[in-house]
Write a protein that binds this DNA or RNA. Structure first.
Lengths: 107, 107
DNA sequence: TATATACGCAACTGATTGGTTTCTCAAAAT
DNA sequence: ATTTTGAGAAACCAATCAGTTGCGTATATA
């Protein structure tokens, strides 16, 4: 069970679940209504997301509300950051080139 | 073959490949040296990454250099952004609370 | 020209995945 | 007290996946 956060967000249903509960905590049943699948399938996804600590449960009677654990999401952000730096650098370089051209036009 | 970029970066080897070629374009053989696996396995990963347009090939004689296509990576960044907004908002709210406490202390 | 190298492709294998069905348990409603 | 409802757990299945092995092809070198 070498489950990491990148594997967790690889599935489109799980990504949709995360977006949904980002707005408000939801139960498996109410989540399942948003998808063309059974509650059990959603439950399985929620288990995976819980294992990755991307969501946490809040018991309320016999209902379980799942809510987002936003902090874990920062790990993905952190990984993407190294690439963000690359395209920002390239943009800055392009910017330099453009301003050089501008200067040359002025002269 | 419903391969999307999130599935592509779900595999740790593929993530490592992306980081490696971010620094400089590399051939399948030189990439394989960095992992405990065969060239063919790396080649398969590269094929998936190519299909997702995360890398592109540059033929040079009988060698094929794979280089990063940074633009595709922005799709992941875009998806994470909606969550980034959430934790930034929460941080700002915390900031407000802290400054309110500060003010109360002053009075 | 013969040989070695770099590579992709196809077939195969064992492991994993997403999904369904069935079961059980606990809380709520009748 | 009985029934309904919300939910997790286990067993099962088809599809997919990561990796290996073997093969064919094109480029480089002897």
């Amino acid at each position: 069970m070498r489950r990491d956060i990148f594997q967790a967000i690889a599935d489109p249903t799980r990504r949709a679940i995360l977006v949904l509960i980002a707005a408000q905590a939801m139960t498996p049943n109410s989540l399942a209504e948003h998808f063309d699948t059974t509650r059990q399938a959603v439950s399985k996804h929620l288990r995976i997301l819980t294992e990755c600590e991307l969501v946490k449960q809040e018991y309320q009677g016999r209902e379980i509300y799942y809510q987002l654990e936003i902090n874990k999401m920062k790990e993905v952000d952190k990984w993407v950051e190294q690439f963000r730096k690359i395209w920002e650098d390239r943009f800055n370089q392009l910017d330099k080139v453009l301003s050089t051209i501008k200067k040359q036009k002025k002269c």
